[in-house]
Write a protein that binds this DNA or RNA. Sequence first.
DNA 1: GGCCCATGTCAATGCGCGTTGACTTGTCGA
DNA 2: TCGACAAGTCAACGCGCATTGACATGGGCC
Lengths: 197, 197
Amino acid sequence: MTDLAEPVRPAAPPRRRDAGATRAAILEAARIAFAATGYDRTSLRDIAALAGSDVALIPRYFGGKEGLFTEALKATIAPDRLRDWDRSRFSRDVAEMMAGAADIADPRTRTFQFLLQAATSPTTAPLLGRAVQERFLAPIRDWLGDEAGQERARVLAAIYIGFLVERLIRGAALEGPERTAFVERVTAVIDGVIGPG
Amino acid sequence: MTDLAEPVRPAAPPRRRDAGATRAAILEAARIAFAATGYDRTSLRDIAALAGSDVALIPRYFGGKEGLFTEALKATIAPDRLRDWDRSRFSRDVAEMMAGAADIADPRTRTFQFLLQAATSPTTAPLLGRAVQERFLAPIRDWLGDEAGQERARVLAAIYIGFLVERLIRGAALEGPERTAFVERVTAVIDGVIGPG
DNA sequence: GGCCCATGTCAATGCGCGTTGACTTGTCGA
DNA sequence: TCGACAAGTCAACGCGCATTGACATGGGCC
């Protein structure tokens, strides 16, 4: 990891020695760093620097790198805010988002990258299926309404994931007419799934 | 990497010293190993053992680990037989394939796993982007016809990838009415992209 | 105010990695 | 047949990593 951001810790800590706060800072830094660079390319030194604490605390507090990753994964698989989205604007919002570059600051991007990273790690791979079911399929199904069924959620989730991967691979944002055409078509595709029957 | 298989080399080599064959064995071993465990978790020693050759040959033949990965990636993303596909049956064929379970024995699955591994590593993601552009998007664009433009190929590729991920995560094949509904909808989605304008 | 344990710091250790260079050995042409 | 060069082997190096244990220090409690 090259450079991400300044330390996560609050500017004026109420106590200069607070194990709970330190632990939380490390965990938050780990979520950011693991999502950004994956398990292997993220060193505990990176995480400690991002958390503004010492490397040696990590094995002590989390039992090691794997323990930290597991806990960060659990913390990342949280209920989505999909219900808050405006359904009439959903497809276009998603399309616009997909036309942009992958923004690591976006928690959704972070979550997705994290899950993708987890998929490639044999230790954490089994967690992924359940995570996707809980975090993607179930919310989407509920959001679409009961009449939609599992199948529409499945298709929508697949398309969503596909565009996330595409964006991840693409790197840069789309520009000009290509962006316009892309957004139009993605909007149409998603509308085709969530719209009628 | 723990244990994969026996060395790839032919049992009775015609020549005991054959740089071309050794290079090819290393490359094939790299394709298998990288697909299985990703860039970071695969060591050159693993690959060399799988190829039945020496570690030191890899930097010499491929210029280093990155060079080997790049070449393995290129070899994996070979020009597809896309042109041979029947366009009128394309969407339904794909949909039926997606409704099934992911078959590890299928070279396409292996290829895809390789790409997914590449996508999650920041080092290799740019390489993957270029490779996908050259070997995936461009053929699709040509296949769709010039009027289609880059943008339709992009959308189609994203959808394709998304369903591959979904299938990989899902594990089991779909059955009964859910399968029918899934196939119908996927067919419609793909038709919507490759069909009209 | 002073003890003492929780908390944080620091240096050191061992390991696996990619890479390098010197060396050996096979093989093919003269 | 034999020499030269390609091909393969081997040991070692430097580096970054996670982890450990000894040490320093802050702050709540008596």
